Amino acid sequence: MSPPSTIAFDPGVPDGTVLWSGNLQTNYRSSNASTGGYVCPSSAFNIHFEGTTPYLGNNLYTTGIPGISYRFKMTGPTTGPIIYPSCFLQKYFPHICWINELGAGMTNHTLSVELIKTGSITGGGALSGVFAHWFVQLGRSYATYSWGGSVVIQPTIPTCKVSMPSIAVRLRDVNVNVFTGVGKTSPSQPFDIVLQCSGGNTGTSTDVYTTLTDQTDPSNVSDTLSLTKDSTASGVGIQVLNGTTVIKYGPDSSAAGNKNQWKAGSTGNGTFTIPLTARYIQTTPSVKAGTANGRATFTMNYQ
């Protein structure tokens, strides 16, 4: 199968819409064994026509891309006679034909391939390898259909930028007597990371992931932010929370799957707000009063 290297579409169309279709022309040399063709011995057996990916029902097979499925149909020969055409022509996969005599071979024919929208599409992907086959005995393919290389499937999804790249969080003065033991915390103070997202087709969304990095100690992967070197207090650190979850720090990287990267949510076009809170936490048995500042960066990843 040799479609365009990239298949782009509007993912906001209704479920059941054909996003792309194409015809695959087979390339059998002939049905004559003496000229190097493909021949089956005379026999009686079932030929199964199926996709090689999980079957979803209703003649649909998964592509591995959420919201997009395959549909296949053999539409006819391009040259020469075809054996038992009424058995499998114009039939969607999966299909079974009972063959009680096949002493020649299969001539060139056409397979129609369709990509169907079957649900919410939140991202793209790629198609590659074998996607359908015939078999007589499971595990032994008589014919296979495959993509000619990797085909990129790309809906237009939103991209985002940070509204305010620098955010100052005031933790306010805290009496040292609040810290009566390791793990004791001060009242939390709220702040937000705000994104402006645009450019996506109707109905698309992007998953927003975030990594916080300790700028005083970039190797820190705990859930407590170090105090800056100019801080005069000791015995405390700073925690940032997303809801009730204390966020751990990780390397300053936007790579997907970065250590301690966390999912902030999903968004379409428009404003997306990530609500957070910050607080002090006691880290040693004794606390010394003074200034207690921390500095972290946040790095976004969109999927």
Rank of each mutant, 00 (worst) to 15 (best):
G105S: 03
D217G: 07
D217A: 11
V151Q: 03
T291C: 02
A143W: 13
M164I: 12
C40G: 07
L227A: 06
T224M: 01
W147P: 04
I274E: 11
Y38T: 15
A126K: 12
G67Y: 08
G80F: 01
G265P: 08
T75L: 01
Y70R: 09
G294W: 01
T107V: 01
V152I: 14
S163A: 14
A256K: 12
S150G: 10
N242E: 01
S128C: 01
N301M: 08
I83W: 09
N108A: 02
S266H: 09
G243F: 00
I247K: 12
F93D: 02
T75I: 10
G57R: 08
G125D: 13
S30F: 04
G200W: 00
S222K: 07
A33H: 07
P4Q: 10
G124I: 08
A255N: 11
V176Q: 14
F49K: 03
T277S: 13
T273R: 13
I65L: 07
E114T: 00
V130I: 14
E101P: 00
G139F: 05
P66I: 06
T291K: 10
N242Y: 13
P14F: 00
I167A: 03
N100I: 03
F135R: 07
G64H: 12
Y84V: 10
G76D: 01
W147Y: 14
L24N: 11
Q90F: 09
N242M: 07
C160I: 08
G199R: 06
Y55P: 08
K263P: 12
N220L: 07
V39T: 15
Y280H: 12
N100R: 09
D230L: 06
L24H: 14
V130G: 06
Q196P: 08
G203T: 05
E101H: 11
M106T: 15
V240Q: 10
Y28G: 12
G36C: 04
G129C: 11
L276G: 05
G270H: 10
I274V: 15
A289Q: 08
S226W: 03
M164W: 00
D15V: 14
T17A: 03
T245R: 14
I167Y: 01
D252V: 02
V176A: 12
V151C: 10
A255I: 03
A126C: 05
S188Y: 05
G294Q: 03
S146I: 00
H48V: 13
M106F: 13
Q215L: 12
T277E: 02
F191A: 00
H133T: 13
M300C: 01
S5M: 04
K117L: 08
A143Q: 14
